[in-house]
Computed example of a mutant assay.
Amino acid sequence: MNTFLVLLIIAAAIATVVMLVRGIIAFLQTTKEELNSTDTGPSASSLKQNKMMFARIGFQAVAVLLVALLLLMNGGNR
């Protein structure tokens, strides 16, 4: 069971890094025209950045919860 949790933690950590990189790439692809736009509401680029960063937060939360679960399970095994 512990090995399975460790693998899930590694997968969640990798997913966190992938979403972080995708969010940064979306941020870097923002054009000057989008920044100077007078349109009301968020641009497509802003929505994509927001989506990537919320996904990162979700994967990060899953990784933290899995680490906490692993620590709780091994707390009595000293």
Rank of each mutant, 00 (worst) to 15 (best):
I24M: 07
L47F: 10
S46I: 06
S43K: 02
L20K: 05
A26S: 09
S43P: 02
G41A: 02
L47N: 14
K32H: 11
T30G: 05
S46P: 01
L20Q: 06
L47E: 14
M53K: 05
E34M: 04
A44L: 11
G41M: 04
R22P: 00
S37F: 02
S45Y: 03
I25S: 10
T31E: 06
L20Y: 08
Q49A: 07
A44I: 10
D39C: 12
I25A: 11
S46A: 15
A26V: 01
A55V: 03
I25G: 06
Q29Y: 06
F54G: 02
K51N: 07
R22F: 07
T31H: 07
I24T: 06
G23R: 01
L28F: 11
L47W: 12
L47C: 10
M53L: 12
L20G: 05
K32T: 14
M52S: 08
S43Y: 04
A26F: 02
E34T: 01
Q49G: 05
G23T: 02
D39G: 12
D39Q: 15
R56L: 09
G23P: 00
P42G: 08
R56V: 06
N36T: 15
M53D: 02
T31W: 07
D39L: 15
R56Q: 11
R22Q: 10
K32V: 13
E34P: 00
T30M: 14
A55N: 07
T38N: 14
Q49P: 01
Q29H: 09
T31K: 10
L28S: 09
K32Y: 10
N36V: 12
P42E: 14
T38S: 14
A44P: 01
K48G: 01
V21W: 03
S45F: 01
A26L: 02
Q29A: 07
L20I: 05
F27L: 12
Q49F: 06
A44R: 09
F54K: 11
L20R: 05
L47P: 00
M52I: 00
T31M: 04
E34H: 01
A26I: 01
N50Q: 12
P42N: 13
E34V: 01
N36H: 13
F27E: 03
T31V: 07
L28T: 10
S43M: 05
N50T: 10
P42K: 15
K48L: 14
Q29M: 09
S37K: 04
G41H: 06
R22E: 09
E34W: 02
F27Y: 14
